[in-house]
Amino acid sequence: MIRDITIGQYYPSESVIHRLDARVKFIATIAYVIAIFLFDTFWGFLPAAVWLLTIIIVSGIPFRFILKGLKAVLFLLLFLVIFNALMTPGEVLVQWWIFKITDKGLTNAGFMALRLSMLVIGSGMMTYTTTPSQLTSGMESLFKPLGIFKVPVHEVAMMMSIALRFIPILLEETDKIMKAQQARGADFESGNIFRRAKALIPVLVPLFVSAFRRAGELAEAMEARCYHGGKGRTKLHPLKFAARDYISLALIIGFVVGMGFVP
């Protein structure tokens, strides 16, 4: 079940998109997200859609895998569509009891669905094509200037990458603890919402205890291996701009400027 959700996963491949510098991909994603929120006309969406499609094709990631990412937000998507379709005032097309569907409602719902899907797929492309460690070192490098305002950029990046590594381990642990408590007669499946929430205490307490124990042991292991914060640290794979990164950056700038001419 949890494995079905592809969003946030890395899809290993050797495409140009995969090899791009994480910083370039990060900037591109931001530009893209701004683009889809700025426009609500067909002509406004077209460039972003073409842009997204190109990236998907070049990255070589199968469409099936990408669509699976949408599954995670399916409910939100449906809710937004229905909400928009019913709640927008305008010329009534269909009416049934107190429900009215208006022409404006329909267009709103359509754009909303399109916008959200494109947002999920677009930001998904970033994580599919970038390893978590590249992602965090890219962010660390981009946000480095914030260091002068005493923002602990390196520490935050390190925390993110450790969290990413431990998510699967903690999920497995949750499963183990739930099974152990089920073996002692715990019931997580019946009763109302309060009963179910209460039934989770025997899972959450051991989970927190174990997370803290792991954190302590990990901190010790990191210290034992000479970790002393970001000062004087080097990287096995330092981020380096190649020709493809400069070209991509030029394309992004072109895209952003181009958006200014969209009617």
């Binding site: 590594r165 042991e217 000479c226 970790y227 096995l236």
Partner: peptide, 24 residues
Amino acid sequence: DNQIIAETVEEDVAFGPENMGMPV
């Protein structure tokens, strides 16, 4: 499990040398 820091074997092995500030 609680002493591996990085996402790949290679990067984990490099963790110590990175902290030492070793040239790439």
